Simulated assay, not measured.
Amino acid sequence: MAEGSSEESSGNNLRDFMQKDVESRRSYMWYGKDIKAENKKNTRALVNKVLSYEHSSPFVNMLMLAMANSGCAVNPDTHIAIEECYPNTNVLGAFDPSNNQIVLCQNQFAKLYTKRGRYLSMTYLLSHELIHAFDHCRAKSDVYNNPTHLMCTEVRAAALSGQCMLQYNKIDASLSGLRDYHKQCVRKYALLSFRAMFPQWIDSEASALLDKVFPSCYNDHEPFDRMPLTIKQAELSYKAYQTRHRYSVK
């Protein structure tokens, strides 16, 4: 789950939480326009833009290729669902392992004010949720029932999605010091996401679990060959991944 969203444990049914308000799912009309349909159309167009070659992100490119190479190729029309979500939360989207889908909240993206903001949010969100999808594909992570699995994939999603790049966290980095800002950023967002999924956990227990899994999960860079601290490093890692098996003997 991406940071900035609020997600509660819901009997292993992600949709129940994201769409728990029935009224939020009805079509709203405004001057003869179906706002729900318009939001869905705009969100799908934004997904297609982020996935297009012209506007591609090395983070998204890497993960889409890695998913395909792992036998879990992502078909945007099938595996990226666009739905109306609970309006009184700031959820933008989440990965639903029970349906092998990334779920995007059309009404929440409609609230973002600028085209640039919507594009960057979608790029970051897809990267984040694709990490969860990749972990589920390669290791069958059970995020609903295994807190260790959830904490580990949240650490990896925060670390490998570009969420904690310096260019997005200059204020936090200046306050905490450049040397350790990335690890501190990853810890912060992983803990926030975990506590949103398991709100019944007290702070000390969640922090203890984070301490336990952090070294191994933070240093697990797959499918990247390095920690992508910048867009340039992500690009280099993507190029390296494309040629990783060029000389392998079958």
Score class of each variant (00 low, 15 high):
32 G>K: 03
33 K>I: 12
35 I>V: 15
35 I>R: 09
36 K>G: 07
38 E>A: 12
38 E>G: 00
39 N>F: 09
40 K>P: 01
41 K>W: 02
43 T>M: 07
45 A>G: 05
46 L>C: 11
47 V>H: 03
47 V>A: 04
47 V>E: 06
54 E>R: 13
54 E>I: 02
55 H>T: 01
55 H>A: 13
58 P>N: 03
59 F>S: 07
60 V>E: 00
60 V>P: 13
61 N>H: 06
61 N>E: 11
62 M>T: 12
63 L>T: 00
67 M>L: 15
70 S>N: 11
71 G>S: 02
71 G>K: 10
71 G>I: 13
71 G>N: 02
71 G>D: 10
71 G>R: 11
74 V>Q: 03
76 P>A: 00
77 D>R: 03
78 T>A: 03
78 T>E: 15
80 I>Q: 01
81 A>Q: 15
83 E>D: 11
83 E>G: 02
85 C>F: 12
92 L>N: 12
92 L>S: 13
92 L>W: 10
95 F>W: 13
95 F>K: 12
95 F>G: 04
95 F>R: 06
96 D>G: 04
98 S>P: 00
100 N>H: 11
101 Q>W: 07
101 Q>I: 06
101 Q>S: 10
102 I>C: 03
103 V>N: 04
104 L>D: 07
106 Q>S: 15
107 N>C: 07
